[in-house]
Design a protein around this nucleic acid. Structure first.
Lengths: 254, 254
DNA sequence: CCAACGAAGAGAGCAGTGCTCTTGCTTTTG
DNA sequence: CAAAAGCAAGAGCACTGCTCTCTTCGTTGG
């Protein structure tokens, strides 16, 4: 990671970046399955075989894009986390969820790459697990902060079944020893459920079902916040949501 | 739809079925992106071009498989709905959700086809919308029956924002005029959230996070039942869940 | 300063893909 | 029975991921 590089090394990182950029562009316009190495090379004015100097295979290019996507959506969530420091926990929860959702609707194909069907025979390598966890960890941080401030209530729902408790206890010991085990379990469920709503929106399942997707998402995120034990903020936010910046009627599928 | 068919017509439907069957087999073993018309034809002992007599394009084959998949998971849900008639609403809710989940983990690639990333430039045709709604309608039926029996409580969560209420009201008028609007909104959210958990499980996001996936799913489904206003069944189901038939430790990604 | 080394690009080529078009054959139908 | 329609086969086009060889050129050690 030296700042000073030889011309060669410099060129390499630049070309690598250009390849990823062009690949991302094609990803957005064609979708992952139609991403073509040759087309990327063509667009970059190089021959297809030259691309293999930078990525040993198409799957490796995918891996790079996947990591970037995880990092991007994770960064969005973390930024919302940081920006909302000091706010009511439920509102922070909604802000973090909303940041992830907004990134997803802005980058549907990259989102599909990471939260959609796993690519063919391709097993996600180990490098992806840390970036993949960033959004989840941001949610954990919201709840952890609430706990630290003494405003974390008990999660809703019936008592945990044995195996679920065991899983949650293991998780808790790894990433948030201070949080109650049932809270962790509720957190994991909420995490998956948030992405369920995002996926339905991005993948078109809400077409002709839900139009006001931004407000709908916020509504659901608020319910999930309550589910994990974050009390709703005092004031009734019931209506309005003005300046929401949401294009409700827009068709999603390209 | 005449029962009696000429030999030719009969052969046609048989070949069509054989193609879909073989395609499904390849789908299961290779994944959607690697499904190859030529390979299907090869396996069936015919030449690739002959396949185009039955499906005008690869996308049309996909469409057929998608409809079948929607119908299969929908049928599974409806069967659970019928089988649970008379049980406590919350338990019926869980049963229907669980049926959909079980089908999904048993047919991960078909599930990915319908609830994963939409295929490349392929816009789902209108034929898919009815089959696609079957699981959702089964969930609506559970809640509708509970309402009819007078055991439906109010949904949890804050009051609806204006646009959300409008969407939900429209939906309610279309498919369940008897249900309260907030219930419909909660139902739609719960519907998406159920599939969020299923997708995370099927797509491998729960690897090294949740191991007892069956019980975990039931836990979350129970919480969602409460969310839409279905009171938990009397007895404490807290532990046990024996004979669960869940292979907890199994690696998911092929 | 220059020679050796290694990284990078070019091009040909392989096996595979979706899809089209033409050519024959068989079944159905008027 | 002959015409029409349905169907399989084969050749072929343009494309894909990937490998191999060959040449060029920046970097670096003596």
């Amino acid at each position: 990671m030296s700042v000073i590089q030889g011309a060669r090394e410099r060129a390499r990182t630049e070309v690598t970046a250009a390849i990823k950029e062009e690949a991302r562009r094609q990803l957005a316009s064609e979708g992952a399955a139609r991403l073509s190495l040759r087309a990327v090379a063509r667009e970059l004015g190089m021959v297809s075989s030259a691309l293999y100097r930078y990525f040993p295979s198409r799957d490796d290019l995918f891996t790079a894009l996947i990591i970037d996507a995880y990092d991007a959506i994770g960064a969005a969530a973390e930024q919302a986390l940081a920006a909302s420091a000091g706010a009511a926990p439920a509102d922070r929860w909604i802000a973090v969820c909303r940041a992830a959702r907004d990134w997803a609707v802005d980058h549907p194909h990259e989102y599909a790459l990471v939260y959609g069907s796993p690519v063919p025979g391709y097993g996600a390598p180990q490098d992806t697990v840390v970036p993949a966890s960033r959004v989840g960890l941001a949610l954990v941080a919201v709840v952890g902060d609430a706990q630290h401030d003494g405003v974390l209530g008990p999660p809703l729902g019936r008592p945990l079944a044995g195996p679920v408790r065991a899983d949650a206890a293991l998780l808790a010991s790894e990433l948030a020893p201070d949080l109650p085990v049932p809270t962790i379990a509720a957190l994991v469920a909420a995490w998956a459920q948030v992405f369920g709503i995002v996926s339905f929106e991005v993948f078109g399942q809400f077409n002709r079902v839900v139009e006001a997707r931004g407000p709908f998402f916020d509504q659901a995120a608020a319910a999930l916040a309550a589910q994990v034990g974050l009390a709703p903020s005092g004031g009734p936010p019931a209506d309005g949501q003005a300046g929401d910046g949401d294009r409700a009627g827009g068709e999603q599928r390209s």
